[in-house]
C-alpha cells in the first residue's frame, strides 16, 4: 500500500473514509488523491448524495397500497372475531 492510493483503491475505501475508520496515513492519502482527482471526488459526491435521493425517491406514497389496506382489514376481522 503506497501513501498515495490509486483511483481503484480510493473508490473501494470511500465509505470507510467517510465514516472515519481508516488509519490516519490512508485518510491523508485519500484526501490528497481527492484534491487532485475530480473523477474520484465526483464519485464521493455521488455516494454522499445517494442516501438523500433514495430517501426522497422511496418515501411513502400518500395513500397506502391496496395490499396494505387488505392486511389491515384482515386484522380488523380477526379482532372482531376475538371480541364476539
Amino acid at each position: 500500500m503506497t501513501l498515495l492510493p490509486s483511483c481503484r483503491e480510493v473508490q473501494t475505501q470511500l465509505t470507510e473514509y467517510a465514516e472515519g475508520t481508516l488509519p490516519l496515513p490512508r485518510r491523508i492519502g485519500i484526501w490528497i488523491h481527492l484534491f487532485f482527482c475530480h473523477v474520484c471526488a465526483g464519485f464521493l459526491r455521488g455516494l454522499r448524495a445517494l442516501p438523500g435521493l433514495a430517501k426522497r425517491a422511496l418515501a411513502p406514497p400518500e395513500a397506502a397500497p391496496e395490499e396494505a389496506s387488505r392486511a389491515l382489514a384482515e386484522i380488523q376481522t380477526r379482532l372482531k372475531r376475538q371480541q364476539s
Binding site: 422511496l58 418515501a59 411513502p60 406514497p61 400518500e62 395513500a63 397506502a64 397500497p65 395490499e67 396494505a68 389496506s69 392486511a71 389491515l72 382489514a73 386484522i75 380488523q76 379482532l79
Partner: peptide, 15 residues
Amino acid sequence: FGALVQPHLALFHNG
C-alpha cells in the same frame, strides 16, 4: 384500531 392505523398505513407498509 382501523381509524388509528389507517393514516399511518402507507408509512408502515413502505418501511
